[in-house]
Design a protein around this nucleic acid. Structure first.
Lengths: 185, 185
DNA sequence: AGGAGCATCTTGTCAATGACAAGATAGGAT
DNA sequence: ATCCTATCTTGTCATTGACAAGATGCTCCT
């Protein structure tokens, strides 16, 4: 959709999204400034508004991209444990995406593309958990998926918030794997 | 500390913190406006700056209060499972506190009072996990605590983000208990 | 009692920002 | 060639955070 080609300035839409990722990495999604993005892209201060309407529009596009990226990472994982590790790895590696994705107050949660992308992530997660031989009652899969999602998401957000003690180390994949193992038993 | 008594206007510091909780509940911590708080309290636009310096100062005070509140809730819990439920319940009930506490980019993470309060929360959490008869190797307590913290924190943040499917229901305590049970086995 | 000193709060101001409106520019369609 | 429309610019306004300087009133000391 919105096939942006090089018009006056170039592929501005894409350039703005890239600049946004960079800026969010530096100052966080809350302090993101459209005018700063315009400066980074070398265009006037009102140019971003044309492509995204407002700040929420831009972050909506970013969040949708992020959910698609995450879905792919989850699909590529070999098993549930590795999917959890991939989830944490995504959060740390693509911090800017992750920080936007789970802050619906920053974007339009009713956007069609965003909802579709988020659903792809959810499906990837559930399909991984469904392969588990838990042998529990039917319907347990939902709760297992929720538990797996919760522990991976919790570890990722605590890591990003810098809330974890130093003793956890500096290797998120390794630390995440040890913690996630507590669930699978 | 900072025993604020009724001077010119009243207990302004306390009034501003209360107004901040209200405002954050309405628009989130990012969109919080010091001038709006001043209007709510019926004072001039620069009055908040005197008590808290800047927005980060105010949110630092809020976060510290929040960590103390949370620590008390965790201490009051009967066992680890109920501590996890209390954690989620705190996040949902005191959403404004919770949303500030884990966003260090909004406050001063090096504040002494805040660090002390956060440490009280952490100690309450670990002491609960330490009573578990896991029988694992020594040092497992740390990882158990981290896993418990992660799953409770993850469920809470996903709940607050509105990311959970409707099927989870509208009772956070009940839903959290079912999910947290997956960990204790 | 009375004044000094200080915490508290106000008024005024500035740069930055988001949002909007109106105009300029250029590529493509007819 | 001319119109048309998407793209981008210029200009503007209200809001905000931060700072500076001044006004107000409590408190304490003598």
């Amino acid at each position: 959709m919105t096939e942006t080609r090089a018009y006056h300035h170039g592929d501005l839409r894409r350039a703005l999204l890239a600049a946004a990722l960079e800026a969010i990495g530096e100052v966080g999604p809350a302090a993101l400034s459209l005018r700063d993005l315009a400066r980074r892209a070398g265009v006037s201060h009102a140019a971003p508004a044309h492509h995204f309407g407002d700040k929420a529009g831009l972050l909506t596009a970013l969040a949708a991209q992020g959910f698609d990226l995450l879905a792919q990472k989850l699909i590529d994982a070999d098993d549930v444990l590795e999917a959890g590790v991939a989830y944490v790895d995504f959060a740390v590696t693509h911090r800017a995406y992750f920080e936007v994705m789970f802050r619906p107050e920053f974007y339009r949660a009713d956007d069609a593309e965003l909802i579709a992308a988020r659903e792809r992530s959810g499906a990837a997660l559930r399909s991984g958990v469904a392969t588990l031989p838990t042998g529990g009652a039917p319907g347990d899969t939902d709760r297992d998926a929720l538990a797996a999602w919760s522990i991976a998401h919790g570890f990722a957000t605590l890591w990003l918030a810098g809330a974890l003690p130093e003793r956890v180390g500096d290797n998120p994949r390794k630390a995440a794997r040890e913690v996630l193992r507590r669930l699978a038993t």
